[in-house]
Amino acid sequence: MTAIRVEDRDTWDTFIDESPSGFLFHKWDYLHLTANHTKSTLLPYAVYNGDEPLCVFPLFWKRMHGINAVFSPPPLTVIPHLGCVMNGKFGSLKRSKKESLLGLIAEEIRGELLDLSPNYLSIAFVPGFHDIRHYLWDRCDARVRYTYTIDLERPIEEIWNNLHYKLRSKLKKESKSGLRLERSGDISTLHMLISERYRDPSLDIPPIKRDYLEDLVRAYPEIGVYTLYDAEDEVAAVVAAQEYKRFLLWMGTPRIEGVHAGNEYLQWLLIERARAEGYRTFENMGANNPDLAFFKSKFNPDLTMYFEVEKKDGLGAFSEWAYRSFVKRLMMATGRV
């Protein structure tokens, strides 16, 4: 068993494309853009058993004010889960083989981390990666996190009938109001509305940086900005989505004041669109936010679990707070949002 740093973009992206658990967040250019905009060092590890890659494991290293931090993903990137991606054969293995391989992978990554000597370590694994025991045995703290998913392999009539009855009533009304949906790569309106919301001093983190979001959309046509317009060409709602293996409703704006239930109707149109285009899963981020959870629950999604692990020493105890606070002050002071 050997952990190496991957140097080849095609080798990495081919593995991500072929793994059922790979997200767009894991792709080579996405990772490098993230490293650049967070001023961190990307460590793209792969763990091999002989010539066969068992998993890839992107880590980000950053040193700030004498503190070494290792993240997967870094804060302030709107990446919900990252961590390791297992190869396509892993799911079919017997339990004893899975546990043996996971132990060896954890050991290899632990060896790499020893060289980095992080004061703070944070990893958010993808949904479906539930066996985090090796990290618990290594005295990491664990946190359960959630995301919403909708099974799109069901008939659309079944999905519709499972919506909250008040939501169905709103959607029927909006279907007759002349709203239209457009997809583009223009992030201007989306970012402006998000930035206005996050200027509220009660929020402890800034939004995604505009130049980072622009670079991501430029690099990946799988990222689309969906805007809902009313009959007078006024914006009723806008979101960003990622369309890679699953349809991921990635970022949305606060409700735009007006007569329309824009956010509700836009989300329903995207569910219909995703199903028509053959996606099996619609993921709707926001289940960890109490201000969003009840609204999103009206679509009757499944509550899907994933795990974050964290480990810190005395110096690292305040490092994430310091990182977030420092970056927020800098971004707000310079207008870099």
Rank of each mutant, 00 (worst) to 15 (best):
D186N: 14
L167Q: 14
G185E: 07
N162L: 13
E174T: 01
L167V: 03
L181M: 15
E174A: 02
H164Q: 13
E196P: 00
I187M: 11
Y165N: 06
G178F: 06
E182K: 11
R183G: 03
E196F: 01
G178T: 03
H164T: 00
S195N: 10
E196M: 05
D186R: 08
S169D: 15
I194Y: 09
R183K: 14
S177V: 00
L193G: 00
S195E: 13
S175C: 05
H164N: 15
K172N: 15
S177T: 01
K170S: 09
E196G: 01
H191F: 03
G185H: 10
R168Q: 15
S188D: 15
E182G: 00
S195H: 10
M192N: 13
N162S: 15
G185Y: 05
K166H: 07
K173C: 07
K170Q: 15
S175N: 11
M192L: 13
Y165S: 09
R183I: 03
L179S: 03
K173F: 08
K172H: 10
K166F: 04
S184F: 05
M192P: 00
S184Q: 06
S175K: 12
L181W: 08
L190S: 04
S169L: 12
K166C: 02
R168G: 06
S184D: 08
H191E: 03
K176S: 11
L163W: 11
E174M: 11
I187K: 06
R180D: 04
I194G: 02
S184A: 06
L193F: 06
S195L: 07
G178K: 10
S177N: 14
K172G: 02
L193R: 08
R168F: 11
S188P: 00
